[in-house]
Amino acid sequence: MSEIIEDKATTNTVSASVNAAVSIESPLHYFLGKFSGMAQAKKGAVGLVVEEAGLRGHLNLRGNPQSELFTAGVEQVLGVTLPLSPGTFETNGDNSIYWLGPNEWLLIVPGGSEGRTETALRQAISGHIAIVDISGGQTLINLSGEAVATVLKKSSGYDFHPRHFGPGRCVQTTLAKATALVSKKADGSFDLVIRRSFADYLASWLLDAGREFGCRIETGQR
């Protein structure tokens, strides 16, 4: 592809700023530390823990899965196999690739590496592809705790029962009156990718849905 794309199209990344005076607000910024339900939800064990992962790089990737050049290129750059089965994701810990559609994937990479990743992908792959940095537009949150299954049942019509939705599965579906990409991790917890503009609504929703079990929102360590 042309130089123009590499130089112009990829400049806006979260890591672009190095100035410490620049303040950053994650989508759940104003909810971190909030809790609902029992008084001890602030610190103690609660039924639902919502953890916002630190800022990650989010890239939307489009391409032809029938092209070996494409699939091999992605794997070479990310060290993760491109998932071709609908509703699955692959991860190596640092980088994750989620199937979104027959020619669409979400890449989640360590915060700050999205620009490098995009450049590397464009160098590795030729042909008709699209890569779009959407790091500012969404956030990764993790739901854990005993009440997770019930809270998901409250929130979505999708069947998250372990028989139907095991580790390695992901799905884009409705969550309350918004949408989310939900995935099941090996540790039994669920990762959600939600849109920034709906983050306040969904955080309020989760606090409310989790109230009967105790719910806390915190900065994630996962």
Binding site: P86, G87, G101, P102, G157, Y158, V171, T173, T174
Partner: peptide
């Protein structure tokens, strides 16, 4: 036919 799953109408 793309997600190869049956989903609720509200997704469509």
């Amino acid at each position: 036919p793309y997600c190869r799953e049956t989903r609720e109408e509200e997704e469509f």
